[in-house]
Write a protein that binds this DNA or RNA. Sequence first.
DNA 1: TATTGTTATACTCTATAACTATA
DNA 2: TATAGTTATAGAGTATAACAATA
Lengths: 145, 145
Amino acid sequence: MAKSSRPDLAAMLVPIGRRLMALEQPILDAAGLSMWGYVVLLALGDEPVRTQAALAEMIGADKTRIIADLDELQDRGMITRNPDPDDRRVRLVAITTKGRRTRDRAQTEIQQAEEQLLTALPLADRKAFLRCSQTLAELIRSGDL
Amino acid sequence: MAKSSRPDLAAMLVPIGRRLMALEQPILDAAGLSMWGYVVLLALGDEPVRTQAALAEMIGADKTRIIADLDELQDRGMITRNPDPDDRRVRLVAITTKGRRTRDRAQTEIQQAEEQLLTALPLADRKAFLRCSQTLAELIRSGDL
DNA sequence: TATTGTTATACTCTATAACTATA
DNA sequence: TATAGTTATAGAGTATAACAATA
């Protein structure tokens, strides 16, 4: 059995993912956001989400796992969490103007840093790489891969 | 501040990495290898490694973290760990024929499964994606990114 | 009784610090 | 005393199960 001509894909992508997270960390620190808090703000988009469980599922997390982050986001005025009048068990989670501003500013910085890192790749490849990443990520999120 | 035109790179690559690890797991289970055990066998290549600390560093791990895996690999006859006669503090870690066979067989299966997954991408993009992944992973491992 | 959100418990993984044996 | 390997302790992150409020 011959030795492979390339490393395993996971052995390449996992370290790249770790490096990218490390790159995000100081930006999020400066913005006063935890990694999961940032993910929550991204998932909220601009529309309120009905039920925290649904929000958790959107980001591939357990409903119990995001509660501390929701508490912190709320404390910092990044989100609101109001009981739904129609069913007082559920909370309507919505991003605030401050939350949106903080999130978008952080994301701009993060993507600038990412682009900087991607200059290590030839331009044509870079575009293909982003396209492929997006395709695979979407297929995986939808459960098709 | 406008909404970004693409998801963050980390938000795409980390889930892809997770999916690829999940894809490896049953193959490694069948081979009787832990994830780190497999990584160790890959790092060993075909040459013995002098000192476990060096081996750990090759895979970005702490020397204390791989000991349980080395124990298990040795128990299963995948590696040998002999004291260096010239300095009896250090261990010469070498892969056995069985270890090499097990590793290569697992890697073949893993890469087949990966290629299967990559068929979701157009052929030209797929090649660019692998090329980019390899470039970035190498730059990161060497500390240049 | 079922469901949403919450809290509490246990388990895994990792990092740090002590320990041993050689040098 | 310094270094390679090992073991022990503690911390972070996560998953599971139990709980309170509402339906």
